[in-house]
Design a protein around this nucleic acid. Structure first.
Length: 582
DNA sequence: GAGTTTGAAACT
DNA sequence: CAGTTTCAAACTC
């Protein structure tokens, strides 16, 4: 496409073919180019659209209007001027070059944003608001896009038919300054295909800005940035500072990914936070050499030079994430670890203070123990219930016989964990046990269903020999008794244990946080006098109303604090302890 | 909607 | 070519 453009602006073919649209092609897959005619063509009259890749192909204006000019634009990708809009597409002045220029500027993202409804349906073109440029400078989007102003809010507009002479002069002057002024700013990269990038997600497109952006404060994450506006990544052409518009940028990913991708408030917050960090802690206060971080440099370890700054950024980013719903947080791909593993910028990866405390096997073990708790509680409760039922039956038989009708509890659990066992004999619903009639809470049902997950079964298997739990056989209540009656009690027990474990985690986090804080003070007492009391341990703040951990779960702070190795949480000590406790 | 910020374009 | 100014869009309040 680049070479095919060769010259600058073509001859006025439109004058001889006023009602036709001429498309020149070389390669159908390449981008569309549009020839502009500033000779005074009006709508539908002198519309010449050039597709260098489609040479000698003539299509009707309507086709161009509706689709061709937006060809190769996949939904949210490169946004081109929308010729179907009522603004006029013009032809450039006669020039030597026979090959038509590509589409003009890539400004139109703003057009899209303001001219489309939220569902993406085109509504009406955006109108420029030029006041001082007479719409004869590239400041004017209409002029830059090669279209007449039509219904714009501009003042003293000369970008119209009535001022064709001055407009033509302006075009020539513009071309004199920059022969490529009306050529597209976004060029396809010779490497790879757009499809490949699109497949990579992120809404990425392969093209890059020809001149590159020069953003300083926006982090290239706002529409001030032409690259960002065009929905492309910054490239080596860019001379931006603190660029965050690169593929592995978490800030950028936060903008494009996540459940809150449409939440403009959040997007702005994320962008602002990223920018604030970029220009706040390291922005103008740091040497320019560090400010201009192109994507390539980001991959070269430049950012490692300032670990303090990076730490600050991570804290800020954590604040950002803490301010969004967990659903979004979970949607952020691989919080920090993934980035560390990826080829992203070599940022210092923040790790939770609990990262070394909570191990995978701990989680699995905890789950296993909770299951054991539940099982033991179920047995115990069922025994009690069975005994009481027998007594109740004796009493009832003396008064009136049982109806024998069975009541089937709703079974939301698709795995049918106890489709049979939750059948409750009505005879047991004698009013003496209200809890037996209590419907199973969704949480409990979910818990019981989840207990069938592989993480439970696989985790519990070796150490605690809980494989049998996976098939629920051992989870069936003894004596064939249903589970419904004891679910509430089971829930209470399991939740209590979970709560205790969480308390322990909180305690461990506090301990480690204090340790980290003291370490920071020791190593950087001169500068870090403003570190919070527990440093980054605030990521796991203790609940205000949370009482101190029960004595039996008190953490061996002496060991953990003295030991540089991270303290680890241990679930209740095995089945034996569980049984003893129950 | 007014005011501010931003960065490309224009200018020196 | 670098620095400054102008400009209009993007953004904030």
């Amino acid at each position: 496409m680049e070479k095919s453009e060769g010259g600058h602006f073509p001859t006025k073919k439109a004058e001889s073919e006023p009602a036709s649209v001429q498309v020149e092609t070389d390669n159908p897959a390449k981008k569309l180019a549009r020839q502009l005619d500033f000779t005074g063509g009006v709508l539908g009259q002198a519309l010449t659209v050039s597709l260098p890749e489609h040479a000698n192909q003539v299509i009707q204006p309507e086709v161009i209007k509706s689709s061709q000019l937006t060809v190769s634009m996949k939904s949210t990708q490169l946004i081109r001027p929308q010729p179907q809009l009522q603004q006029h597409i013009l032809l450039m002045p006669m020039q030597q070059a026979p090959v038509l220029p590509p589409l003009p500027l890539i400004r139109p993202l703003s057009r899209q944003s303001s001219s489309e409804a939220k569902d993406g349906t085109p509504k009406k073109p955006k109108q420029c608001n030029c006041k001082h440029s007479r719409c004869l400078k590239l400041y004017c989007e209409c002029f830059a896009s090669g279209i007449f102003c039509d219904g714009c809010n501009c003042a003293n507009c000369h970008n119209n038919v009535e001022n064709e002479a001055s407009r033509r002069e302006a075009v020539e002057a513009t071309l004199e300054r920059n022969p490529n002024a009306f050529r597209p700013k976004i060029a396809s990269s010779p490497h790879g295909t757009r499809e490949k990038r699109e497949e990579a997600g992120d809404g990425l497109v392969l093209p890059k800005h020809n001149k590159g952006c020069h953003c300083k404060k926006s982090g290239c994450l706002k529409k001030y940035c032409e690259c960002f506006q065009a929905n492309i990544l910054c490239s080596e052409n860019c001379k931006c500072m603190d660029c965050k518009n690169f593929e592995k940028s978490e800030e950028r990913q936060a903008l494009f990914h996540g459940d809150h991708a449409n939440n403009m408030a959040y997007l702005q917050q994320a962008a602002n936070a990223a920018i604030t960090d970029a220009i706040g802690s390291s922005g103008y206060g740091s040497p320019p050499v560090n400010k201009n971080r192109k994507p390539q440099e980001l991959f070269s370890g430049l950012m490692i030079k300032d670990p303090v700054h990076r730490l600050g950024q991570f804290q800020q980013e954590n604040q950002i994430k803490a301010s969004v719903p967990p659903s979004f947080l979970s949607s952020i791909p691989g919080p920090r670890v993934s980035n560390a593993a990826a080829l992203g910028p070599p940022k210092v990866t923040y790790r939770s203070l609990l990262a070394d405390i909570i191990q995978n096997h701990d989680i699995k073990e905890l789950c296993s123990v909770l299951i054991v708790y539940a099982q033991e509680a179920a047995k115990m409760l069922s025994d009690e219930k069975d005994a009481s039922l027998k007594q109740a039956k004796h009493h009832r038989k003396a008064s009136y016989p049982s109806s024998g009708v069975e009541k089937v509890m709703p079974d939301d659990c698709s795995t049918g964990i106890q489709a049979e066992s939750i059948r409750v004999d009505e005879s047991r619903l004698d009013g003496a046990d209200v809890s037996a009639e209590r419907p199973i809470s969704p949480g409990t049902l979910a818990l019981m269903c989840d207990e069938q997950d592989t993480i439970f079964t696989a985790a519990a298997a070796p150490p605690n020999d809980l494989t049998s739990l996976s098939n629920n056989k051992s989870f069936q209540l003894p004596h064939g008794q249903g589970m419904a009656e004891i679910y509430p009690e089971l829930e209470r027990i399991v939740l209590a244990q979970t709560r205790d474990c969480l308390k322990k985690l909180i305690t461990l986090g506090e301990i480690k946080g204090k340790k980290c804080s003291s370490m920071v003070r020791d190593t950087d007492s001169g500068r870090q006098n403003n570190v919070s009391s527990n440093g980054v341990a605030n990521t796991v703040p203790p609940p205000p109303s949370s009482p101190p951990p029960p004595p039996q779960q008190k953490v061996d702070s002496g060991t953990t604090a003295a030991n540089n190795a991270c303290p680890k949480v241990h679930p209740p000590d095995g089945n034996r302890d569980v049984k003893e406790k129950i």
